[in-house]
Write a protein that binds this DNA or RNA. Structure first.
Length: 190
DNA sequence: AGTGCGATTGACT
DNA sequence: GTCAATCGCACTA
């Protein structure tokens, strides 16, 4: 997906990414899925990692939109975000869930045989299924990295909007987007 | 140098 | 539905 197609606005990008694909070409084969759940972490949001400025950990949030910000959380898992504004502006969209498309058998190997709709349902599960970690922090998802954003295989259904999951600051803001009634979505689905 | 907590998950009741 | 594990990071001193 070309960078020029991506809205230069964090909340719009979060909505825009629903229905697009995330692809990882590994030596064992291609892993891909439809993005069915996202969350926006815009400029000025106290829940965003970038809120207190750039650090070694969050510097990828300050790259041009379309770059990956991958971080490690709860001592066990990774989460992948898409930087969402112009260079030097810190904001991102968290990818929370995928509907698996290609490489399902390989994903099941990464996820100890979970059922298909559970393979990438949740940010930690998504990165485990697609074998994504800090190696990919800062890569360009609109470039030639083995991970990239692809065009939709089918148009998204109705898109729902809600409060974000698992945060305490700015908890009232409706910055979570999801494809309604899709079983691969974590948390509320309508 | 020490501390508190988090954009979660899987095991268990 | 409930709950503990787990450790990197940012903040305080």
């Amino acid at each position: 997906m070309r960078r020029s197609e991506l809205p230069v606005n964090t909340v719009k990008l979060a909505r825009y990414l629903i229905g697009k694909t995330l692809v990882h070409d590994t030596p064992q084969g291609r892993l891909s899925g439809r993005i069915v759940e996202t969350e926006a972490y815009p400029v000025g949001d106290a829940a965003a990692h970038s809120f207190r400025g750039k650090t070694a950990r969050n510097q990828s949030m300050f790259l041009e939109r379309g770059h990956a910000y991958v971080y490690f959380i709860y001592g066990n898992w990774h989460a992948i975000n898409v930087a969402s504004e112009r260079k030097d502006v810190g904001a991102a969209v968290l990818l929370r869930a995928l509907e698996p498309l290609e490489g399902i058998v390989l994903m099941q190997r990464h996820r100890s045989g979970a059922r298909e709709h559970d393979l990438a349902r949740g940010p930690g599960r998504l990165t485990t299924a697609l074998d994504i970690d800090r190696r990919y922090d800062g890569v360009d998802l609109c470039g030639r990295a083995p991970i990239w954003l692809g065009t939709p295989v089918k148009p998204p259904g109705r898109i729902g909007r809600s409060a974000r999951i698992g945060i305490t600051k700015e908890a009232h803001r409706l910055l979570r987007f999801f494809e309604r009634n899709n079983p691969c979505v974590s948390g509320p689905r309508n």
